[in-house]
Amino acid sequence: MLFGLRRQQRPAVPAVASEVSAAADDDAALIARARAGDLDAFNGLVARHERAVYGVCLRYLRSPEAAEDAAQDTFIRAWRALDTFRNDNGDGFRSWLLTIAANRARDMLRSNVRRPADSLDARLDDEEQTWEPEAPDEAPLDFAARDELGAHLERALGQISPDQRLAIILGDIHGHSYDEIAAITGVAIGTVKSRINRGRARLRELLLADSTARELFNRSGRQESDEGRG
């Protein structure tokens, strides 16, 4: 039942992708105006893509503050480098933004590794409670996961390797194609596939390792296979 609901919501993500292509014309017009120095036009582009950019940064970096910095930096860099975006029909502007964001976020994560005390995952080890969406005053990641399994999944995402996480965020959460992910992350398609496959397998293991998550997971999995047959 729970899963059936989610199943219906599923088109929401591909819808994001198709929304992008449908909005490509609008992007193109805004890009042209922004290139001429129109900051308002550029802010129109920001409004259009900021949720996606921030969402990728947040899920990748696991820290709202860091994600905010990365997202803001991304748009400032994008404004300065607007002329390097060559696609005049506005196609792939979001991918281009995400390329900048991924670079920035990776840099931040690297520098954060040197100060593990600042990273959310380090805090996670000490005080797991802060992660639980059930503690809303403390929850550092307000993902607003719609159900418990989603919350466990968010947590598991923090435990897979950053490369796998980024590939999964872009592919399975944001619905980008392997080609786009390869372009955004700057690796070969084969590497993207392998990261996604390994990441998913690892997520499954992590969910099964937690008893609560396993129960939720098994329930939804059984429903899924029942649905598949029906």
Binding site: R6, R51, F143, D172, R204, L208, S220
Partner: peptide
């Protein structure tokens, strides 16, 4: 089916609210 559930759950994760 586990993997299908993982993928479906990932796809259903909402975009976080903007701060």
């Amino acid at each position: 089916s586990d993997l299908q559930a993982v993928v479906a759950s990932l796809a259903a994760l909402p975009l976080p609210a903007l701060p």
